[in-house]
């Protein structure tokens, strides 16, 4: 029996009348990295955003079904959304640093949650998070510069550092390496390996090798449905569905 951190049962998501996710059931494990793959527009981001209720901010979005974190329904009225999002952190598809200093970007989360008492604690959290995100060496001499003055790839790593600074239990990453060079990508993958087991990790990626490298479980989405979900090795070597096979061999239109 694996240790399910999050479970989703019969989840459907609508944007107004349009159904973007149709009856998806998935478990996210503590010890496994879960990868979401699928063609553009199939609903990977949408589903990921239901896991920490970021869809609440979209007025037209409506979620049906049941999603649990440690056995608690996250859509039940007694769930505190703010706390949920601190426990289930997110790295967005487009890098979105605050227009503040690099230091402030990382320190903001710990500060609002009161995670650091003294300034030195906060300094430590900032350094540790930036190191883990593979950004420390590049920015350690200019922590007071604006986060928006960094390059696209650096911004993305800054956003990762910001997300892990609040020490979440689950990390949702929406294409965290889409703007990164192979070296930075390798650093992020290393980070994912290192974090595995301590955090439940979900990663959306368009890069099949990356999914194969970092994840133990893979979910293939197509047109809002979950086509196949299973061990990564099985999906990549022996997919059950024709559509999965077509997609990962690149034969998809």
């Amino acid at each position: 029996m694996t240790n399910h951190k999050m479970t989703a049962r019969d989840v459907s998501v609508y944007y107004g009348q349009k159904r973007a996710i149709d009856n998806v059931s998935i478990d996210v494990d503590m010890d496994n990295v879960t990868a979401f793959i699928g063609p553009s527009g199939c609903g990977k981001s949408t589903f990921l955003r239901t896991l920490n209720r970021m869809n609440d901010t979209v007025a037209s979005a409506r979620v049906e079904g049941k999603i649990e974190l440690d056995g608690h329904d996250i859509y039940s009225p007694d769930m505190d959304v703010v706390q949920l999002r601190a426990r289930v952190g997110m790295v967005f598809q487009k890098p979105n640093p605050f227009p503040k200093s690099i230091y402030e970007n990382v320190a903001y989360g710990p500060r609002i949650h009161g995670l650091a008492g003294a300034k030195s604690d906060l300094d430590q959290i900032v350094e540790k998070s930036l190191r883990r995100a593979g950004l420390w060496d590049e920015v350690k001499d200019r922590l007071t510069d604006s986060g928006t003055a960094l390059s696209g790839g650096q911004q993305q790593r800054l956003c990762i550092a910001r997300a892990i600074a609040v020490d979440p239990e689950v990390i949702l990453m929406d294409e965290p390496c889409s703007a990164l060079d192979p070296i930075a990508t390798a650093k992020i993958e290393e980070l994912i390996h290192e974090l595995r087991g301590r955090y439940a990790i979900v990663i959306v990626t368009h890069n099949m090798q990356q999914a194969a490298r970092v994840s133990q479980r893979t979910a293939f989405f197509h047109l809002g449905t979950l086509v196949e979900y299973g061990d990564t090795s099985a999906i990549f070597t022996n997919p059950r569905e024709e559509r999965t096979k077509d997609y990962i061999t690149g034969r998809y239109g």
């Binding site: 901010t57 967005f92 609002i112 956003c159 910001r162 997300a163």
Partner: peptide, 13 residues
């Protein structure tokens, strides 16, 4: 930009 709101909400503001 809405992405700034998302960023802040996403870390539990």
């Amino acid at each position: 930009p809405p992405s700034i709101r998302d960023a802040a909400l996403g870390i539990g503001a």
